[in-house]
């Protein structure tokens, strides 16, 4: 703790007059979010994040292989999330939206600071709406009953895939991040999210939103750092069930190649998406990628 906090200045004694300058802001410790806790990166490195004019706007933890390993362990430990009722998952997504909404100005200011975009508030509002979308879906992404030619039913269940690694897009750093995390967890998966590499601060700010929203530990894990190397670790990991990748061609190819190790599902979002467009940014496509269909044949008759 003390190592990361800016050391207190030598304050003058009571005999001296107070300094005319305002107090410096308290620096924030760059950490990762693993197993429901904010944890220091394994190696204790952090990386500076710069704003649109090249000025530093903050720091994030530099995640590495071991952080990914720990995050995957935490995500598996949270597997009970898959059995949580859709209603409960929906309630938690609503609660995330509620807590984000309470801090909308702060998140908008951050987006403005890191991207220089004027429509930052619009992105926060769209993010809240997106959380509502998946809170809504959480108890509505039903399976089917197929009509097969036996006396019986075939239940096509949409089951979560398991542990999904998410390499989030750079465009719309908050909205893009939530657009991947929300459908994955709404359907019962647990995730390791890699925030946008240049604009990760909205995601690291999001830790405290998750912490205050009853999200069970390990359901969402966030590892900041160099996206492609971390995505590669996720893609190679034998206990990760899927990887969604938003990024460049080389990174996508590497993820797909590495996925062959355990034939994990990969979803490469190869194109730049307009995350504000609900057709491109949300809906059944995401839900389908977050689930796999299990057909249970149940013949009957007494």
């Amino acid at each position: 703790m003390p190592a990361a906090v800016t050391p207190e200045r030598e304050e003058s004694g009571p005999s001296r007059a107070p300094s005319p300058e305002p107090l410096a802001p308290i620096d924030r410790t760059p950490k990762l979010f693993i197993g429901g806790k904010q944890v220091r990166p394994d190696q204790g490195y952090s990386r500076p994040i710069v704003g649109p004019e090249g000025r530093p706007v903050g720091e994030v933890g530099e995640g590495n292989r071991k952080d990914i390993r720990n995050a995957v362990e935490a995500a598996h430990a949270a597997a009970a999330w898959a059995q949580a009722s859709g209603h409960l998952r929906g309630q938690i997504l609503y609660y995330i939206a509620e807590n984000l909404s309470a801090r909308a100005d702060e998140f908008a200011a951050r987006i403005r600071a890191v991207t220089g975009r004027a429509d930052a508030r619009r992105e926060v509002d769209a993010t809240i709406a997106r959380l509502f979308t998946y809170a809504a879906w959480a108890d509505k992404y039903d399976g089917q009953v197929h009509h097969v030619p036996v006396r019986g039913v075939t239940l096509a269940m949409n089951e979560p895939i398991g542990v999904i690694g998410l390499a989030c897009p750079n465009e719309s750093p908050l909205l893009g991040f939530v657009s991947l995390v929300a459908p994955a967890i709404a359907t019962g998966n647990t995730v390791i999210a890699l925030p946008s590499e240049p604009h990760p601060l909205s995601a690291t700010d999001f830790y405290s939103v998750l912490e205050t929203s009853d999200v069970p530990a390990g359901v969402v894990n966030i590892v900041s750092g160099a996206k492609d190397p971390l995505a590669q670790v996720l893609a190679e990991h034998f206990d990760v069930d899927a990887v969604w990748y938003c990024g460049g061609h080389a990174g996508a190819a590497a993820v797909e190649r590495a996925s062959a190790g355990n034939m994990k599902r990969t979803w490469v979002l190869a194109h730049l998406r307009d995350w504000f467009d609900t057709r491109q940014g949300e809906g059944r496509e995401f839900l389908r990628e977050a689930t796999q269909v299990k057909n249970i044949w149940i013949p009957y008759g007494e």
Partner: peptide, 9 residues
Amino acid sequence: RIIRQATAG
């Protein structure tokens, strides 16, 4: 597996 690797990217 080979096909997955061959079609990667």
